[in-house]
Amino acid sequence: MLSEKSAMTVRATLPTVGAAIGTITERFYERLFAAHPALLRDLFNRGNQAAGLQKQALAGSIAAFATYLVDHPDERPDAMLGRIAHKHASLGVTADQYKIVHEHLFAAIAEVLGEDATPEVTDAWDEVYWLMANALIAIEDRLYAERGVLAGDVWRAWTVAVRTEETADCATFRLRPADGAPAPAFKPGQYVSVQVELADGARQIRQYSLSSAPGAELRSITVKRVTGEPDGEVSGHLHAHLRAGDALRVSAPYGDLVLDADDAPLLLASAGIGCTPMVSMLERLAATGHRSPVTVVHADRSPAAHPLRADHMALTARLPDAEAHFWYEDPEPGHPAGRTGLVDLATVPVASGTRAYLCGPLPFMRAVRTQLLAKGVAAADIHYEVFGPDLWLARD
């Protein structure tokens, strides 16, 4: 709980700090990486840093947390904290790194705000920071304990058993622990971090959803090669170099978008490579004989570009009360005309009490969420996963 004095100061300075938060976080990362270049080389996503996405996510999370504290003084934004903590745990973040972040963040605040950074102001925002940091540290410690790993020591050697080309730019890698020990359990919808050593010596990390069934002998990740400005360093490396028999460093599974498969009707909506956690969820539903209604929605460029399309269709067909609705920008002949272009749920029945899971680009998820709310789905029943920095800030 934020102290009354600090709450007043934070409320009064939110407009000033909020207006400058983008500049503050930019200066923070400049200072942080100048002092600790290994963090950029081996922990932070260099692509997201180059695109400015990580800066936006950090700025948004700080502003959202502070706003929540002053608007709800007796509560915490646990959904947002839990999402961040799962991502941190998958990266092996440790408590001592929060002290490093604090040092450079508050130096950046003082530099950017200048005379406005009075002792009263910095003390109040210091309280906000440590409330957030200590909450994250506590959640991350619990997550490490649940996985039976030491704080930060999440990595394990795995071996590629099979590589399958799914589409022109997507490949599935089926993995097994290199030591022959059992693979750790996971929940449908969770992800793992993958760490690779690149040509320049950097050990970059990315998260990939597990696309296999939780009880399967092998663990599968389906990776889309990222192209653009910049190209994906890790996805490109995996596509170019990873073959059957090769070794890979993989984290314990984490993630807060997990299937709660009770008797509620379900809607699983995805776009592009966002289908991977949905396929894992469908695997579990089919394996457990789920009988409640399941609506599957997916959007893609074309049937040929749709990763795991055969699995998506076959698993839906195995459920007794399920329908799949696929939208394609460039459909094949005979595809329903109403399923061309962007997802439009106007003609898709959505049962009362539906619980929805969304994964895909942010514009897609925002559009689907808006349509689901209009159809009467409760906001608390719409859950989502973001591939990359969470700029949506756990709206569920």
Rank of each mutant, 00 (worst) to 15 (best):
Y191Q: 08
S193C: 01
S193R: 00
S193M: 02
V196H: 03
V196C: 07
E197Y: 06
D200C: 05
D200I: 04
D200K: 04
G201Q: 08
G201N: 12
A202E: 14
R206V: 00
S209F: 00
L210D: 08
S211V: 09
S211W: 07
S211E: 11
S211K: 11
S212K: 05
S212R: 01
A213Q: 12
P214G: 11
G215R: 14
A216H: 09
S220V: 07
I221V: 15
T222R: 08
V223R: 07
V223P: 12
V223K: 12
K224T: 01
R225A: 03
G228A: 01
E229A: 15
P230H: 13
P230I: 02
G232E: 08
G236Q: 06
A240D: 14
A240Y: 01
A244T: 15
A244H: 13
A247Y: 13
A247W: 14
A247Q: 15
L248Q: 06
R249Q: 15
R249H: 13
S251P: 07
P253W: 03
P253D: 07
Y254S: 05
Y254F: 14
G255Q: 04
G255I: 11
D256I: 03
L257R: 11
L257K: 06
D260N: 14
A261Q: 03
D262K: 00
D263H: 04
D263M: 00
P265F: 00
